[in-house]
Computed example of a mutant assay.
Amino acid sequence: MIDHMGIKVANFDRSKAFYDAAFAPLGASLLYIVPVEFTAGATMAGYGRDRPVYWLHETTPVAGHTQHVAFTARNRAEVDAFYAAAIAAGGRDNGAPGLRPHYHPNYYGAFVFDPDGNNVEAVCHDAEGDGA
């Protein structure tokens, strides 16, 4: 059900060195660095085996700070329904459903903040968007 997750790190280079070493025995490596024009200048990078699933975001971590979790949707309609239901249940908009081609051409996601401020996402990677 979980598609990917991100954590905040205070020093990207130090964290990168740690995760490069820690993930190598697991067959995972740094696969993608998001262009800074999409991150407001922050360094963001994703680790995984065949696609990025564990993301580092350089910022100042704060004790008790919220996290980002993404859940796999079987199709784009589920992403749309997730967003509508989350907003109706008191979530706050953090990115309406739509393509995010700066991640990859078929990345269709929606983002909401939960009542505690956690960034919760539903995402479909299917090229057709219909789950087929």
Results as ranks from 00 to 15, higher is better:
M1R: 07
M1V: 14
D3W: 03
M5C: 14
G6Q: 13
G6V: 12
I7H: 07
K8M: 09
V9C: 12
A10G: 01
A10F: 06
F12T: 06
F12N: 02
D13R: 15
D13I: 07
R14Y: 08
S15W: 14
S15L: 09
K16R: 15
F18Q: 03
F18I: 15
Y19E: 06
D20G: 12
D20Q: 04
D20H: 05
D20C: 09
D20W: 11
F23A: 06
P25W: 04
P25F: 05
P25S: 06
P25L: 02
L26Y: 11
G27F: 11
A28T: 01
A28Y: 05
S29G: 15
L30W: 03
L30G: 10
L31N: 02
L31C: 08
Y32S: 06
I33E: 15
V34I: 13
V34Q: 10
P35M: 06
V36E: 13
E37T: 02
F38M: 05
F38L: 02
F38D: 05
T39P: 08
A40L: 08
A40P: 00
G41Y: 05
A42W: 03
T43F: 00
A45R: 02
G46T: 13
G46A: 07
G46M: 05
Y47L: 01
R49S: 13
R49E: 10
R49M: 03
P52Y: 12
P52M: 09
P52C: 04
P52W: 04
V53I: 15
V53Q: 11
Y54E: 11
L56G: 09
L56C: 14
L56R: 10
E58R: 10
T59Q: 09
P61M: 08
V62N: 06
G64S: 08
G64P: 09
G64Y: 01
G64E: 12
H65L: 05
V69A: 15
F71S: 02
T72P: 00
A73T: 07
R74Y: 03
N75L: 06
R76Q: 14
R76I: 02
A77N: 11
E78F: 06
E78V: 08
E78L: 07
E78C: 06
V79Q: 07
D80W: 02
Y83D: 01
Y83Q: 04
Y83M: 03
Y83P: 01
A84H: 00
A84T: 11
A84W: 00
A85I: 00
A86S: 04
A88Y: 00
A88D: 11
G90Y: 04
G90M: 06
G90V: 10
G95P: 10
A96R: 14
P97Q: 10
G98Y: 09
L99T: 06
L99Y: 11
R100Y: 08
P101I: 10
H102I: 07
H104R: 13
H104P: 02
N106G: 08
N106Q: 10
N106R: 11
Y108R: 06
G109K: 04
A110M: 11
F111K: 03
V112D: 01
V112T: 14
F113D: 12
D114T: 13
D116A: 14
D116Y: 07
G117T: 09
N118Y: 14
N118G: 05
N118K: 05
N119A: 15
V120P: 03
E121Q: 12
E121S: 09
A122T: 01
A122W: 14
A122P: 00
H125I: 02
H125N: 15
D126Q: 03
D126H: 09
D126K: 07
A127M: 12
E128R: 13
G129N: 13
G129T: 12
D130M: 08
D130I: 12
D130S: 09
